[in-house]
């Protein structure tokens, strides 16, 4: 167990972390490149920048959606807030970073982190249940879509027990191992699954905007493709 733990915290962590950073960077670069290619090909570099910015902001902070789909959106927001804040601003994680690299930044109070942790674990399970219970979402989902919220919740839940060994039903080292391994897995999967939305989300509006830039003669080309050049539209 000790060697496994040392491996999971050492080389495996380095690998997964670096893979997450570089993998996400690769997605951003490839996407940017594709956007530029599409723009060049469409021959129309103009973009409604202001509207785009507003739309992006609205999707990043989906408060107006809260009115339409209160339960789903609310759970989702809670889940994301916890998942983003707790791993990044936990005092213990910052202490580890300071020991390894010397980098430090302000931390959340541990009590606040505890609350956020519990909330996001509950929200993660709730998201899973909601997805399963609503027919529309159930038919849209693939197996991975069900698995991901639970998978992301796993390191958070085990992290809570690592912080509070007194409540731990299994044992500190076993819990720490599961915590580290599941966190490694999440980092590894980020560039490979739709968890990549962590970095690509701000770009989706630009993409769909560019997607609608059709060249001037596209209409006739569609007609040509369908073999109906002569018919009126």
């Amino acid at each position: 167990m000790t060697t496994l733990l040392a491996f999971a915290r050492g080389p495996l962590f380095l690998f997964c972390f670096a893979f997450m950073v570089l993998g996400l960077l690769r997605h951003v670069l490839l996407t940017t490149w594709e956007i530029r290619r599409v723009q060049r090909r469409a021959g129309d570099p103009s973009l409604p920048r202001k509207a785009l910015f507003r739309a992006t902001l609205r999707w990043l902070v989906p408060l107006d959606k809260l009115r339409e789909q209160t339960l789903f959106t609310g759970t989702s927001i809670l889940f994301h807030v916890g998942v983003l804040l707790v791993p990044l601003f936990l005092a213990g994680h910052i202490a580890l970073s300071a020991r390894g690299t010397g980098l430090k930044w302000p931390a959340l109070p541990n009590t606040a982190a505890d609350v956020l942790t519990i909330v996001s674990v509950i929200a993660g399970v709730a998201l899973f249940t909601l997805r399963l219970s609503l027919r529309a979402t159930r038919s849209l989902s693939r197996p991975l879509d069900f698995a991901l919220p639970l998978l992301v919740a796993l390191p958070i839940a085990t992290g809570f027990f690592v912080m509070h060994p007194a409540l731990d039903p299994f044992g500190f080292r076993a819990m720490l191992l599961v915590h580290v391994l599941s966190a490694d897995l999440v980092m590894l999967l980020m560039p490979l699954t739709k968890l990549v939305h962590a970095v690509l989300l701000p770009g989706t509006q630009v993409l769909s905007e560019i997607g609608w830039h059709w060249p001037a003669d596209s209409g006739s080309r569609v007609a040509a493709a369908l073999g109906k050049e002569e018919e009126p539209v």
Binding site: L30, W33, E34, R37, V38, R40, R41, A42, W214, P215, S218, R221, V222, A224, A225
Partner: peptide, 12 residues
């Protein structure tokens, strides 16, 4: 291909 010819770029 008529459709992909100009609308979609060549794949990466």
């Amino acid at each position: 291909q008529p459709l992909s010819h100009r609308v979609l770029p060549r794949p990466l």
